[in-house]
Simulated assay, not measured.
Amino acid sequence: MNKPIRKAVFPVAGLGTRFLPATKAMPKEMLTVVDRPVIQHVVDEARAAGIEHFVFVTGRNKGVIEDHFDNQFELERTLLERGKKRELEALLHDLPGPGQTSFTRQQGPLGLGHAVWCARDIVGDEPFALLLPDMLHHAETPCLSEMIDAYANHGGNIIGVYEVPADQAHQYGIVDVADAGAKVSPIRAMVEKPAKGTAPSNLAISGRYILQPEIFDILAKQERGAGGEIQLTDAMITLATSQPFFATRFDGEIYDCGSKIGFLAANVAYALARDDLAPDFRIALNALLRQ
């Protein structure tokens, strides 16, 4: 029987240089998509999938993320005294329970693989989810929920993938699968940013993973790869020689909030999905587009 997926790792140590000066004093993960920080949207996805423990790999000047997932007694008391019951309930609903969050430091910018390795002692000897907070997955059924269903049926390691234009495949981590039309398919090969015209498919890694704990031993010995960083894809390629990997295709919309265009598009999409905002927001958008 497959061990359940109880823990999720969120690497949030990046500097966010593409959003300077906004991220000079505020973590990029705390930039808001409508009225929720990007990291809150990703944690929401994990909670909806049944994750019980949230592991944040942080860095310098990221303390506000820890504060965000904690009680703020003065604010809560003020809301209570002013009769703002709905706002207070919303704040408390978003909070993980006591003991459900852990924070560990990645002291240097050594890559995603190193960030994952930093969570090894908290995750322990069990499979875990990994969610990149830059990538917002927008759909009625959360991406991680689909992946956990695939894991329950297949075991092994699961990677979320989505289709990208073939002429842009060189910009992504790409997987080759046994059946490109299937929702879940065995992975035959993985390559990080293949040279133009050499990609084995147009299925890109979407920033969602379910990994077995043996990845930590591989990462501990992993040599630095592209950019002088410890690459997670390199470690997964090694793990794939002894364990199966499966791709789960995500058919919703993905917004790369690490880019300005992706971040702006996410704000529009998430606002239009809100019943309380969409009608007036459409009017405002149409007025802007007519200018």
Rank of each mutant, 00 (worst) to 15 (best):
G63V: 08
G111M: 00
T104Y: 00
E74F: 13
R105T: 06
P96F: 03
E45R: 01
C118K: 10
I65T: 09
S102C: 06
K85G: 10
Q72E: 08
H93L: 11
T58N: 14
E76T: 02
D67G: 09
E87I: 03
H68D: 13
F73Q: 09
Q72C: 09
C118S: 10
E45W: 04
T78N: 02
D94L: 13
R120T: 11
R82H: 06
G83Q: 02
Q107P: 15
E74G: 08
N71Y: 14
E74K: 07
F73S: 14
Q107L: 11
R82A: 06
L112C: 04
L95E: 00
V55I: 15
T58P: 14
G50M: 03
A46C: 08
R60Y: 11
A46G: 04
R60G: 12
N61G: 08
T101P: 07
A48K: 14
L75Q: 10
Q107M: 09
G99M: 08
D70I: 01
G111K: 01
F54T: 05
L79V: 00
A49F: 11
E45V: 14
V64E: 13
A119L: 05
Q100R: 09
L95K: 02
A49T: 15
D67V: 04
I51K: 05
R86W: 11
H93G: 08
E52D: 06
Q100P: 05
G113Y: 11
A115Y: 01
H53C: 05
D70M: 08
A115L: 01
G63M: 11
E87M: 07
E74A: 15
R86C: 05
D121N: 15
